[in-house]
Design a protein around this nucleic acid. Structure first.
Lengths: 272, 272
DNA sequence: AACTGTCTTCCACTGAGTGGGAAACTATCC
DNA sequence: GGATAGTTTCCCACTCAGTGGAAGACAGTT
């Protein structure tokens, strides 16, 4: 009975990682039961594994017994993709200093835009993205840039699937999007108007690397300033070129620790 | 013979984590053999576990087969200690904007200062610390602030052990350090002069939380400007108060995902 | 072709991992 | 207080996932 109906292929490692992955989406501290449920790992096993993770500082218990990600894990993970972040950081910082607007840098991770860095001040702008967070490619300016300059098969595959509606303003018609992407390539920049969150618009330009798209940098501005957004284009382009120059000598994969560079599909789903 | 002399207490989890932990210190991509050696996990086991970690995106293989931390791990780990980082970030940014100097925020992690955030421009200042990195408490300004305002038993325990020399300028005499800490408490700020790396000095002030020390913010300036460092004190204190106000309503443990708050000792050593 | 270092595959053995069940804690409500 | 519900923790016999030495494949280099 004990250990009876174990799903084959369910390794200890997969359970540990499934537990860690639960925290990818959840913001607050979780209870043991919640983790067990969300990860699909039986409660008693969760209990033991979580205990071990806590011992290592990968997870930590809050004052009320709630379980969170530990700082040890954070510290270790800071080394992932460090090259690109460290190299680009001063330039993203410059972008912010020069424009005063929330500045961000994103790469493609599967069929999402993954936000690698972000510089912002105390000014209150509705924020949808966050460092380490992902948003659909077609709903964001950085994402549209990434789509526009990706290899055809990536774009085709992406537009082939149903596109999520984030706000009422999100463009989800594949044909119109395709035209929009052509325009992006022509103009050299992409914009969105409240397609991710109401009250915010964004503009982005590509950053190339060895002839191909490397990443994308952009600004988020309050909708009230959307009209004059394009005045930041020279700065955006200037900063983009600086980043291109600074990263040129580093192989792309080394820069990032290779993102899910291949097919625009989500990585293997461990459960079921 | 197979699986014969297995060290009791060596769980799969511990092996997985040991492998991940190898990347805490190493900057470049590692080979399988290197990982096996550094983690103490047998090569063939390392091979399998690394394979699984790569499948999950926690590790990733570079162009030359080198193994690095994966962005998936990074993205997940961004949720650790997010509360404090997100809350304090705009203020650290302000600190940088107002002073133009590298601004940083650190907390105590065991007997090290753990750098939580850092804002800097393109100006070249010799950099020792990095986000996610640790430095000895007694060698840095933020660290001295942390030591000065910690509970007595923490400070006593810390000064009881031999203190590492980082540069020739590092103060390592316990008695003199104790006097220095008293002065820090009196003045309300700490400074270092090339104690971590030649060419850089730093100044830091405490950020309190519910009457106790929460974290510390500071500036790194080029040694040539060390003399006028104290002119930044009003800004430092102002920003500190802002952070105090912004974080006051959040319990400390929730803020960070509780650092190794207890004894100033390194967490349990898994090997041996 | 012989050498060196690294990666990958194989496979028989076995104890680490397993997870249902039950007990031990908390709350919270009547 | 004691009944109820949601947690977390502990227990333990069973067994298959994990193990790791050894050998094979795959580079580079001399």
């Amino acid at each position: 009975m004990a250990g009876g109906n174990r799903v084959p292929g369910s390794t200890v490692t997969s359970k540990v990682l499934a537990i860690m992955e639960v925290f990818e989406t959840s913001r607050r501290a979780l209870s043991l039961t919640e983790i067990a449920e969300a990860s699909g790992v039986p409660l008693s096993t969760t209990h033991r594994l979580v205990g071990e993770l806590v011992d290592w500082g990968m997870l930590s218990r809050g004052p009320n017994g709630g379980i969170q990600l530990g700082l040890r894990l954070w510290a270790i993970a800071q080394n992932a993709g460090r090259q690109l972040r460290d190299t680009a950081r001063p330039f993203v910082q410059d972008l912010f200093s020069l424009t005063g607007e929330t500045s961000q840098l994103a790469v493609r991770d599967g069929n999402m835009a993954l936000y690698i860095d972000r510089v912002y001040g105390s000014k209150r702008v509705p924020r949808a993205s966050r460092v380490g967070g992902r948003l659909p490619l077609h709903a964001t300016a950085v994402g549209k840039v990434i789509l526009a300059y990706s290899e055809d098969w990536v774009t085709d595959a992406y537009l082939g699937r149903p596109l999520a509606t984030v706000t009422g303003h999100t463009h989800i018609n594949p044909t119109r999007l395709r035209a929009e992407l052509a325009q992006v390539r022509e103009r050299g920049y992409a914009t969105t108007q409240e397609e991710v969150i109401l009250g915010s618009c964004s503009i982005a330009v590509p950053v190339f690397h060895t002839g191909r798209l490397g990443c994308s940098i952009g600004l988020v501005v309050s909708s009230s300033n959307a009209g004059t957004m394009t005045r930041h284009l020279p700065v955006l382009r200037g900063v983009s070129q600086r980043i291109e120059a600074a990263t040129a000598h580093i192989p792309l994969e080394t820069l990032l620790g290779s993102v899910t560079g291949g097919a625009p599909l989500p990585p293997i789903d461990p459960q079921h």
